[in-house]
Design a protein around this nucleic acid. Structure first.
Lengths: 110, 110
DNA sequence: TTCATTTATCGTATTTTTACGATAAATATT
DNA sequence: AATATTTATCGTAAAAATACGATAAATGAA
């Protein structure tokens, strides 16, 4: 008696929602900022900056990775993460399109 | 031993995350689309279109409202909802700014 | 006033998310 | 080979999200 009807919505809607979900925690937004700033992106650096345990940060990184927003390569005992700019821009564009589309029919209502 | 460290992040990060969270379910994206299309936005119309129970839709509407994305006015026994374009555009702009800012320092890494 | 309609809210069950410590896995270093 | 360092994963607990039916609240119609 519960849980995910998500599949019953359109692919596009699911896709946008999944992206939004990846960005729906301040820690993950902060991680993206750090990744962009340092450009180089070793996991430990992120842990240092965030007010979270190492395991928690690792979990957030995993979610961003699964959402396709970042990728990580192993570098010795370290892990190097970076932003997947292509995916990022694609979804950014899709959101912009959604906004534009929504705004198109607007004409004030309630 | 659990739960929300969200306050420890910056206001901006929290704000963006909250917005993303509001958009993090396909049902809510679908609702926004319907609101924009019909422009007029009576709750019952949304319930008709979505594959969800009335109470569930009402709950999603409440979340969108609490996030500031839509507002609702009572109209007899009905409720009329519409998109808060100002808020919408403001956050849209903020996201665009975030994207731009992130992209700025990019130079390929891993 | 009584009845029908519409919508919000309550109660509740289930799933997912968030967080942590502990530990395993992988690789450098000594 | 032994040790230290870094990070992912496991186990787990608590909270939040998702969904529904039932019901209350508000208003329109009879």
């Amino acid at each position: 008696m519960a849980e995910h009807k998500k599949e019953e919505f359109s692919k596009k809607e699911q896709e946008l929602a999944a992206f939004a979900k990846a960005m729906s925690h301040p820690a993950r937004i902060a991680i993206l900022k750090v990744l962009a700033q340092r450009n180089a992106c070793i996991c430990g650096e992120i842990v240092e900056v965030l007010p979270l345990a190492q395991s928690t940060v690792s979990q957030h990184l995993k979610e961003l990775k699964e959402a396709g927003l970042i990728s990580g390569t192993v570098d010795g005992p370290r892990s190097c993460y970076c932003i997947n700019w292509k995916v990022f821009e694609k979804i950014n564009a899709e959101f912009a399109a959604l906004f534009a589309k929504l705004k198109l029919q607007n004409d004030m209502c309630c």
